[in-house]
Design a protein around this nucleic acid. Structure first.
Lengths: 192, 192, 192, 192
DNA sequence: TATGAATGAGCATTCATTCAT
DNA sequence: CATGAATGAATGCTCATTCAT
């Protein structure tokens, strides 16, 4: 009674399709996405896809939007849990090293998203919201510039660590985060 | 008769094809690359492509390799020119803000490259060399961990700045670079 | 509950659908008619069409029948109004040149009808009735053979005039009609 | 040796495709033409069609042009053979009744052509040339207005005869043709 | 009685790839 | 050595039709 799997009303089907699309992109690359692969991954008939989505571009746009939002949420959750500046720094380190969003899958999807967004302006806004949300999460604990810097660091380290044969170790990442995050008085008032 | 109007040997043709491939990727996205588009962009006959390259995957692999090397060179050149730590820091800021490699085109191509490389192991090595070269260039002026951190910062800021409606200003970037680059005595003598 | 905003009985809906079908054919060509276009043009829900009509073929058959009848009526009306042989001839000229039925729209629809009818025998009868009605209208004023001839002339001139960059002028059409319509004694008393 | 059926050079393939297209239209109607049907009728691979023709519209345009030209030629040939005014009139009667071009197939195709041309301006010119050629052929024997009238008569009678259960008999057609073609002095100078 | 959500068969078209020259 | 004509497999997408409500 709690919802047949195929009835005329399957309100979760849209979401299933979007998740399947991300799965297919993650597995084969956006370069090889096809309606047929998505339909098969989602376990829905081919005609469903164009019934729910005007065309592939719209489908991908929604799928990537969904990705950005879900990653964003997890990013924020970790920082929200932090209670002290030290915990906040630790959260950043965890985001970088603990693969909170930097799963290979998510990282991969984010490359595809960046590439796709560069050609589809409607996704630029999604990207901006995502970045803005990350910075806001960081801004609960750090000043705005530091928030920007840490966000950039998360991006850069995540990418490089995924490529690196010997990723930067957690303690080292922590040291860098501390350097960026700790305010300090210039040594002798010299520079700038 | 043995080729009067067009010499049978056109040694630059391979390179022309690879550059054309990058142009096509930059313009249409890897998702829409076709032999026809590349051939037309390079001004070579269609048959040329499969004559010089076994298939599209090989062609793209070489094209991306070419991209990585050329970007790498420019990155290194800027740092090599620095004579003092301050100049080195300034070079890093310039790389981030001056769009030395972070041209929209290059950035875009790098997303495509990352996405492509994630699925083609032979490119992982190319990516590693690229990253290694960057770090080596930085290591002329900074200790290894700082080099890694700055490299990550370059990556992250470049990406975020290209998305940001109001990119981080040069002075602010400089401040962050200084914070990462300036060695200091740890508060209580602990790490490193 | 039994249909407050829209009565469950919408007797004109069938007709609206048929008219919309003709509009769609006139606009897009029979080659591109779809249920969706018709439903949208008629302002009725998609399900309506297959509710009222078994399938597209039946719908088109009825639509074309409707067309034939309405055109036929106008043709007849003009001839019925004529009181003298001269007025009858003038009516024929008017039908040809005044675009009584030879509207571009009707002409266009008649091509589609002819093509459709050639493949759907049930429409042959409709076509015959149409032709028969036209001839009957003409037969009020002319002998049977002249009626046939004038009817053919209407058909042919209408088509040719719609294609012609410089259609045959009204006076010339009138002369031809007169030549066909005016009985005369054969040169040497032979034929007929 | 006189040409393998499938070699890389099959210069007649274009024409075969066009003829096959006309066959398919004649058999199924333009409304049901598909590349697959044409390819199969022509005995060529599916990919051939879009290799030789940019798209279906271009293919149909060429096919209809071919039709118009071939019909035009036969029409002209019959009239060219006539040596006296009487023979010319007889040729016209033959064109109408003898199914010179008014084959059911050709008639059918001409309906489709008219419908198609109404929506594809590039065919209007083809139609005009066709009509012009017919009139020129007639103008070898008749004055310009009579040529126009006879051409309209051919068109109209051909169509009506193909619909009619009892087509107008040859002798009657001949009488009408004579009435149109024979110049005469107005009975008593009255009319007009 | 009337609807619109859902589907699968079929379509035009694209394109990497092959291969005769 | 180099080419471009030719092909067939696959793609995104359309749509008549079905059917639960």
């Amino acid at each position: 009674m709690t919802g047949s799997t195929r009835g005329p009303n399957d309100p979760r089907r849209r979401e299933r399709i979007l998740d399947a699309a991300l799965d297919v992109i993650a597995e084969h690359g956006a370069i090889k996405v096809t309606f047929r692969k998505i339909a098969s991954a989602a376990g829905v008939p081919l005609g469903s896809l164009t019934y729910y989505f005007d065309d592939m571009q719209h489908l991908l746009t929604e799928a990537f939007t969904r990705l950005a939002e879900s990653v964003s949420v997890r990013y924020g959750a970790l920082l929200e849990a932090a209670r002290t500046p030290e915990e906040a720094q630790e959260a950043v380190v965890e985001i970088i090293c603990g693969k909170v969003w930097g799963t290979d899958r998510n990282l991969l999807l984010s490359y595809e998203l960046y590439a796709f967004a560069a050609r589809h302006p409607e996704l630029t806004e999604v990207l901006r919201s995502w970045m803005h949300a990350s910075r806001q999460s960081l801004a609960r604990h750090f000043d705005p510039l530091t928030a920007r810097a840490l966000d950039a660091l998360v991006e850069g380290f995540s990418i490089h660590n995924s490529v690196d044969a010997r990723p930067t170790e957690r303690a080292d990442v922590a040291a860098v985060v501390r350097a960026v995050a700790t305010p300090r008085t210039p040594p002798d008032g010299a520079s700038r």
